[in-house]
Write a protein that binds this DNA or RNA. Structure first.
Lengths: 233, 233
DNA sequence: CGTGCCGTTGAAGGTTCTCAACCGTGGTGG
DNA sequence: CCACCACGGTTGAGAACCTTCAACGGCACG
């Protein structure tokens, strides 16, 4: 599969229609195509703003504060677009959770390339807005929720993105480790593990091996996620 | 001052050039112009995605989790653009920190209006990206920093946005209360107050009344903000 | 079959929260 | 003019939640 073909789903998703082949070719010329193995980190040029398209696989965007403390800012799955700024208060890296296929674009050149196509530009804006809103929700969780609520939020959120509904239950295959979950929720692995244990014994979920999770009571879980209640007064 | 005139600085900032007057007129027709007094909240229609332009004053974007817990997601000052999604996991409101002048746009119609002007569209994208990157930095702070580092980060960040350099010192007039700071940093007002006291006695800053802060040692403060160190190995 | 990593569970400790009292300021009304 | 009150900020003591430190179990891989 060549770069242009890899790009097609991206463009289709962005503008909601089959893309003009000229644009696809133009973008393909800009893109650096990279395959990253599980645990590897994407070769990012931190001197310039970037967009990264996740063609296949899944990634985590990791920020490092001082003293080696790490915070996972977001998880991404196939089809997602990630924005990585040139330099920031914290140093960012993009790591693969499984064998992953990426297209890396310099932001300024991508802007120029799609400037003539408002539909694509608007689509990109929409993606960035979604990322912003997810990040805000994460900030609420990190600032104002306890460990149980954070883990419940995480599971509910992942269920929406990569879960498979089966009757009233949802099954999940989590590509990330407990450490990743902890680093994403601002907790320690031990606390995450304890929360999983409590939820297991409460009958809210069942786990199989490291990755497989079955949410037995998604509604209960959602109710304990600390989201604003859709009240019936 | 009419709406079109209020819009001009926005458009100039977005595309880096004097705006075509036709576009300004078109956008002005979309905008709902609102003045909000100190402490008041903007009349947002939560049924649709919105952009809000802060023409004058300053605001806080507040998210409510369940049980009345509030997290301030961002502060905004004159010239900023805020994106407010239709509905989210948490309920958002935009509150004025001082008498504030706003222009409220329905997102979809704004998209349509500026679709023909790639420079403006790209400028808007740039603003949203900046917001995303700030939100990520906030997430790092909320997830992985202690109280002292959070307050130091806050002061350093505010100094960049609304501070006045005077020799090696920086003076600030904070429009937000201690409660707002606490709600922004995921702490309690008591903890914020204690951190201010410690920094005062350490000689890092001096306060006058509620709002006025003078950073005596901005570099020391920045060093204690827990950002990644720019090391010389 | 040994090794190493990841996940789980337990006990002790620390940072922040909660509850409470006090202080200073600004506005109001007698 | 001053007393009073309301509100925001400061300071202190105890409690709660999460972290830290430690040990153990299990699965994958060489």
């Amino acid at each position: 599969m060549n770069k242009t073909e890899t790009l097609e789903p991206l463009l289709t998703a962005l503008c909601g229609a089959p893309p003009p082949s000229q644009l696809a070719g133009h973008l393909a010329a800009l893109a650096q195509e990279v395959r990253v193995s599980r645990g590897g980190s994407a070769p990012l040029d931190h001197r310039r703003d970037l967009f990264v398209y996740i063609a296949q696989g899944s990634t985590k965007l990791v920020a490092s504060a001082s003293a080696g403390r790490e915070q996972i800012v977001a998880f991404h799955f196939a089809g997602d677009i990630v924005s990585v700024p040139a330099h920031s208060l914290h140093s960012y890296s993009l790591n693969a959770l499984e064998p992953t296929h990426l297209l890396i674009f310099p932001a300024s050149e991508m802007h120029a390339a799609i400037a003539g196509n408002p539909a694509v530009l608007t689509g990109l804006l929409q993606r960035v807005l979604t990322a912003l809103h997810r990040c805000r929700d994460k900030a609420v969780g990190l600032g104002r929720k306890n460990a149980g609520e954070r883990v419940a939020s995480f599971l509910v959120g992942m269920a929406e993105r990569i879960g498979h509904a089966e009757g009233g239950e949802i099954t999940l295959d989590l590509p990330m480790s407990r450490r990743d979950i902890a680093d994403s929720l601002g907790l320690t692995i031990e606390t995450v593990s304890r929360q999983f244990s409590e939820m297991r014994s409460a009958g809210w979920l069942r786990t199989q091996g490291r990755a497989h999770v079955r949410l037995l009571q998604p509604a209960t879980l959602a109710a304990h996620a600390g989201h604003v209640e859709l009240r019936s007064p």
